[in-house]
Amino acid sequence: MSELVYTLLEFCHVAKIDEQLVMEFVEHGILEPELGQDQWLFRSDALSRCLLAERMRHDLQLDLHGVALALQLIERNQKLRHRIDYLEQLVERLRH
């Protein structure tokens, strides 16, 4: 259940995003499908990344280079946030 993979067509259908746009996301390194038997395969975690990319593109009117950069920064930010949460909890446990 967790590691579903999609072909390009399935992926576009589920994400409700145009095939052309998904291909451009791939070109800009925003999505990195694996290459299986002559076709791209998208892992299920690519889906939320794709939807986030589309929101950045549409809502913030970024070009795809900007979208790629925004995603990189958003993800780094999330990682740092998780790390801070973890360290804060750890400090709490060390103090009490």
Partner: peptide
């Protein structure tokens, strides 16, 4: 829901 062994925070599960 089947929770996969070793799942981590933020992981997305899809029920088609």
């Amino acid at each position: 829901v089947t929770i996969p062994k070793g799942v981590t925070q933020g992981k997305e599960l899809r029920l088609k």
